[in-house]
Design a protein around this nucleic acid. Structure first.
Lengths: 237, 237
DNA sequence: CTTTCCAGAAAGTGATCACATTTTTGCCAA
DNA sequence: TTGGCAAAAATGTGATCACTTTCTGGAAAG
């Protein structure tokens, strides 16, 4: 294996004991790094994640990693096996159906709740993200698609100022993203469709029912159709 | 303050270093203990929870407590202030509305998903819990009511074998239970109504739409009416 | 060539320490 | 009595160690 030092922070490695330093705890950095990896599918379902291994990978001590893995386990994002080992859970048909159900129940609702707070400027920002998505899709860049699709949805959702629904949806995305990455890697991204433009139009019109329908359809298009099919063929995943 | 040693495990206190001992990790025990306290309202909203303090209270070392607090923070159950201190969050009107919305979206759905797995024996068990609830309500025993109401709902939900929706709902209950305890303590439990009997009837009939309606109404009755009113009068809570 | 078993490595868990920061307390002066 | 200020206590965070359990790989036996 090639030399890889400190996937976290490219700066000079000074870390005196217990130096909370620059107002960003090491745990928060590790947490962000792991979440990003999950959301962009850089953690494959079934992959086992070890404290010391990830700590070495990120160039930090085991303690912050240990706490982050606890957090993600509690969020139902990582799975703790009976022997204590932690891994990215494999997707099952039952699990997939539940995630889809939960998304369809929660996300259209939160989008509608966010609607009053979404300005024309927000709609412009969403359009910019969506244009970027179109480019990535045609290029087959699955990882960037995942990242931007997440950015699109959460730019909407965050506008709601939600304190309860948003964390729930956050957990859901962390749960399905690793699996969807494998799906997109298998079937490609070229024929992926979404309802982002319909959603943006609904936002500009301030049309709640249209926005609800768009988000619902978007989830079905991006996740429902493909994933269900994949799971029928390959058992665990 | 009176002497209080080890609220956890009344047995002889032997704990050699790193003895995973009797197949129940200390962390799991602490986790269960804290969750029970939250669900029965023994943690008051606004109460600050410290690692060392809780560890001393439970008679364990700080490490397991530290991990449990991380888990509950990640689940949006405990709040981490900007200074790192952890506390049971105060309920706000916005937060309350969101919890109620999320409950109404998720719980009726999961109940219906559980319906096919609910046998006549399960209905009998639910009836037994509900009878117990009636006794506690007339006695004004708010803490037992919280515990049994939780038991009633989750006896249903668990039958679904859910891996995704159930953890989400779990998080919601941990979020609103401390607040509801203060509500019941203020208005009493005598005039509390629920739809448990309607739910049990729907289960015995295998009637999905009736069950969905019963759960929805039960949530409105037990939480919606009272809580909204209380929040109008006292600001934080 | 396959199976069994044992030694070494790897991994999670709990304990303890050190340190920076924040909070609390108690005292002194106005 | 009250206001502020400094000392002390409390708290979260990171690091490190010890120990148990589990996993892995290879050697020996069939």
């Amino acid at each position: 294996m090639a030399m890889r030092r400190s996937a976290l922070s490219s700066g000079p490695e000074k870390r005196s004991p217990a130096t909370a330093s620059k107002r960003a705890s090491t745990r928060a950095q590790v947490d962000q790094a792991v979440r990003t990896r999950l959301l962009t599918g850089r953690f494959i379902p079934g992959k086992s994640v070890t404290i010391r291994g990830l700590a070495a990978d990120l160039g930090v001590s085991p303690m912050p990693v240990r706490e982050v893995l606890q957090r993600l386990s509690a969020e139902n994002v990582l799975e703790v096996k009976s022997n204590g080992r932690v891994q990215v859970p494999s997707m099952t048909p039952a699990r997939f159906d539940e995630v889809l159900t939960a998304r369809l129940l929660l996300e259209p609702e939160l989008a509608v709740l966010a609607l009053p707070s979404l300005s024309a400027a927000d709609a412009d920002a969403l359009t910019e993200i969506d244009d970027d998505i179109d480019v990535r899709l045609s290029n087959g860049d699955a990882e960037s698609y995942l990242r931007l699709n997440h950015a699109f949805h959460f730019a909407m959702y965050r506008a709601s100022g939600s304190e309860v629904l948003l964390p729930l949806i956050d957990s859901l995305w962390l749960q399905f993203s690793p699996f969807m990455r494998t799906v997109y890697g298998r079937v490609g991204t070229a024929n992926l469709v979404d309802q982002h433009k319909a959603a943006i139009a609904a936002i500009r019109d301030g049309n709640a029912s249209a926005l609800r329908a768009a988000i619902r359809a978007d989830i079905q298009d991006g996740m429902g159709l493909l994933g269900r099919e994949i799971l029928s063929s390959k058992p665990p995943a």
